[in-house]
Design a protein around this nucleic acid. Structure first.
Lengths: 243, 243
DNA sequence: AAGTGGTCTAGACCACTAT
DNA sequence: TAGTGGTCTAGACCACTTC
């Protein structure tokens, strides 16, 4: 039941992205907003919507009075940390062709911290989903997801392919993942984790501890993830707040 | 030469933020957009602008057809990683009253990586600015800034107080810092760094390696920063791209 | 002075939620 | 079915850059 004819704004974004990729703008200069509006047959407001979002994505920059330009610097970023939505996608952005291996899929009793984070009752259980993302048999990312058992709408959850968590939640719990609150933690991998990620114990890594919220702002998943620092570096764009 | 009468959108944002802080919305429900527009005497477009930005900041969330609500979860975040602009502010957000100590302020020959990052010529030098941010004599953040000597417009750069880098650049180089491209790296602090941060050698920390760009999208500063993981944790909000 | 992006308005219509 | 947020339009005026 996907209802999704792309909005005009999204079509404009796609159009401009293409022209950027094809190097279709002379000197990296993007035409004036009024010209784009005329050419594409939409209002200037719609054009500005699209440009604002492209600017926020780091693909262009604008200077009042001067013009709008392609941001060559921003194009360097492959995965913008704050816009990651699936690790498969992250690996693809890095030029990999990822595979996923499910290491565990069992129902367990949650630890106190998870109980608190997911607003569980004392006798609630959670589904633990441990997944390893690999590139050509080389482990890159390890994630452990904890999802309250009680939110599942079907009991038959055996799937041949394991989809990304947000898709899993839509299919089996009828929840739409809206955003994650994430904490970034530096760790030295212990024996077990190091073995799973195929590195020496004590290797440094970035770890995420995060909680995912659904469309009603209710916590639906707690995730812990570990990343091979030698294979995957996160980048982000820091801006002035409110800009 | 600050020209800054707050826009209507910003005034609306401030107004709603206040009412959120004062718990002035019953059941966390924010009035309909048309009502806000009437009450505040601005167009609905302006209201929507303000609400969009508040939503992006994680302070509210919206559900089509249902309404707009205060996001209690988002209020928990003290410093949103992607919106950090000065470390003084970060520490203040954490309830600290920070002080800054300048450890070094000298002109040096840059390493090859910095030359490349800042698009320097072979004989260019950079100003190295090493600063320590403390809370009550306890070191929390160490930053090393490298700024091309050639961009300074004045030679007299002795100041009693050391301002944040973006202010320093505005004053002495007439450049407006627009954004940083940052890379997040896990590190074990070596002897020297550990000593400066007042922890044991080998202590784990998050490190940023970043390049700051000005209003013309030219690189103007390279910064390396280290954070006491036991005193300061970075959080961020991850969303679906384009949302 | 001309041209660009930045802000704001007033209004139309659509998609979705609640009841 | 009424009410909410989501998208889009056409146009006005302002702030800034460029020449």
């Amino acid at each position: 039941m996907i209802t999704r004819n792309p909005s005009l704004t999204e079509q404009v974004m796609a159009n401009i992205k293409e022209r950027i990729a094809d190097d279709g703008f002379e000197d990296g200069r993007i035409p004036p907003e009024t010209e784009l509006a005329n050419d594409l047959g939409v209002s200037r407001t719609t054009i500005r919507d699209a440009l604002s979002r492209l600017e926020h994505e780091g693909r262009i920059y604008r200077r009042q009075g001067a013009g709008t330009f392609v941001n060559e610097q921003g194009l360097q970023i492959r995965s913008r940390l704050e816009e990651i939505w699936s690790y498969e996608q992250v690996l693809e952005d890095h030029g990999y062709t990822p595979s996923v291996r499910v290491l565990a899929e069992t129902t367990v009793t949650p630890d106190p911290e998870t109980v608190k984070a997911l607003l569980l009752d004392d006798d609630d259980t959670v589904l633990m989903l441990e997944k390893l993302f690999l590139e050509d048999e080389e482990p890159v990312i390890l994630t452990i997801n904890l999802i309250p058992s009680k939110i599942f709408t079907d009991t038959d959850d055996t799937e041949a392919e394991m989809p990304p968590v947000y898709e899993f939640l839509e299919r089996h719990a009828n929840r739409t993942l809206s955003y994650y609150l994430s904490e970034i933690i530096p760790v030295a991998l212990d024996k077990k984790l190091a073995a799973k990620l195929g590195v020496a114990p004590g290797t440094l890594a970035i770890s995420f501890d995060e909680i995912g919220f659904d469309q009603n702002n209710e916590p639906v998943v707690r995730a812990t993830s570990y990343f091979r620092d030698d294979l995957l570096r996160f980048r982000l764009m820091r801006r002035r707040a409110g800009a």
